[in-house]
Write a protein that binds this DNA or RNA. Sequence first.
RNA 1: GCACUAGUAGCUCAAUUGGAUAGAGCAUCUGACUACGGAUCAGAAGGUUGAGGGUUCGAAUCCUUCCUGGUGCGCCA
Length: 574
Amino acid sequence: MNTIEQELADAVQAALCTAFPGEETVGAFAASVVKTADARHGDYQCNDCMQLAKTLRLAPRMIAEKVTGVLRENQVVESVEIAGPGFINFRLSQTWLEDRLALVESDAFRGTPQVGEGQTVVLDYSSPNVAKPMHIGHIRSTVIGNALDRLHRYCGFRVVADNHLGDWGTQFGLILTGYRHFADQEALKASPVQELERVYVESYQRSKEDESWLDAAREELVKLQAGDEENLRLWKSFVEMSMGEFHKIYDRLDVRFDLERGESFYNDKLAEVLETLQSKGLLEESEGAQVVNLEEEKLGVCIVRKRDGGYNYATTDLATVFSRVEEFSPETILYVTDERQQRHFQQFFSVAKKVGIDTRMEHVWFGLMRLPEATFSTRQGNVIKLEALLDEAERRALEMVESSSPEMPEATQRAVAKAVGIGSIKYADLSQNPQSLVTFTWEKAMALDGNSAPYLQYAHARIRSVLDKYADQFPEGKPEEADFALPEPLERELGLKIARFPEAVLVAARTYRPNFMADYLFDLAQTYSTYHQSIPFLRAEPGVRESRMRLIRLVADTLKTGLGLLGIEAPDRI
RNA sequence: GCACUAGUAGCUCAAUUGGAUAGAGCAUCUGACUACGGAUCAGAAGGUUGAGGGUUCGAAUCCUUCCUGGUGCGCCA
């Protein structure tokens, strides 16, 4: 199913060709139609005439005149008007819109065109470091990445979500050394990652003061990388402990991966990467290291092999991309990380291109999260653990549920508190542009009113509640047999917004900006709330009542589906 | 120093990537519950889009100079 924007754009395109037969510039032009910013201008608008004025050497309004003459015959629109310097404003036909809603209702994807059909996207996100607990800095990659995952699947893409764990970094030298000297086995059993972190932080601090400690750590790392049995065994146990903790959090967040290949997975392919670079003549030696020179692109040099013979991030990423291209032949690979890695990805993409990778690769970066006082870091120990954040969110939500729904069974209250608490945290992140810098405050992360998850969940639950009440009061009623009817302006607005759902999905997916989806949902929920307040439905006359039931049920479904695309639950009662 | 990035209402953020009179939420003020869920709704007030210059039918958005923050800039990831 095409979006309405697309249908209208096609109509404009056709009208242009009819109005200006034989004009090459018109034939090559791709007409576009967008929704209006202001309802007074109609439902959709086309701004192309102003652009075409130059190439056609005609006044924009003149072009618009010719085009609208043809467009008026179109069944989709009720009126076509020219305004201002040459805008064409469309108002959709009432019956067409009503029929459209029936199509949307019966469509498995609520009218969303399956633009990704036959295409594969590899999505690299979350990627925490083993032996360090996940803190609030990890939530953005996880939540944004997961939303992009869901949005793309919904558009028909085959998505390969890969959790590219940091399980092979230099931190293991420090951890191994620390582990041998001051690990507390009891604590390790009780709370493994916390203890590993303590060991890491202490070992790191010791290395700052003590050169020989650092040497020992390096030695342990070399032994590990050379395949030393004892170190390998310990390393594996560290990874397992961490994964257990990570999965507890992923379960709570309802985040799932298709693959969880850490950097270690590519360990034996790194030498090959060097050979490939060598054979393409890209390798240079510089200060004892092997590098790819990117001075021409003003990207400095990219180190692919350290002076001490070790490989690093860029090398692993290259090995990873080779492997992904070979195994999945993706059209696109997305990397969701924070802004600090922009330069790394520019370098890495550039090198990948040089060795012949032509897959589209995008770095979807997001702004750092920081505390009001400072940035946080595991080493400084000023992190807020993700687990604590989720606990607190659920606790606050539970308080709210207990006071507003005391009659609800306790188990249900807990489930609702989880949906609301976790949903609030996700929504706080997803409702803003990923690229903005975020200063973390508990208050903001868990906003429970205004533009927030609970507002949307409330709107949804309220509709479910009305629908149940309807089923109680009118057991014979059959809303599914009523026609969609939008006689009231508020009703029409609501119907139009439902019909626009696919446009929000596509924009959010295409621009890697889940906040477009969040915006859309908030707008829809707001319109519904106004409707709810001012239009009677259970008390409306028979027939009208059924129509309205069918309409609000579709609103509820749209809200639930949209929230689902953001990874947020919409319980029937909250 | 160079590069990237941000600066929008008192605060937190939008603005469909160049469209029409820059929109929401919070906070403030006014109003609506014997109600289909008040976790709500209606309304008011709040702006020289950091500053200047430029590009054009049209600029928060593009170019340019400056100011202020953030981040990065060779062996971490």
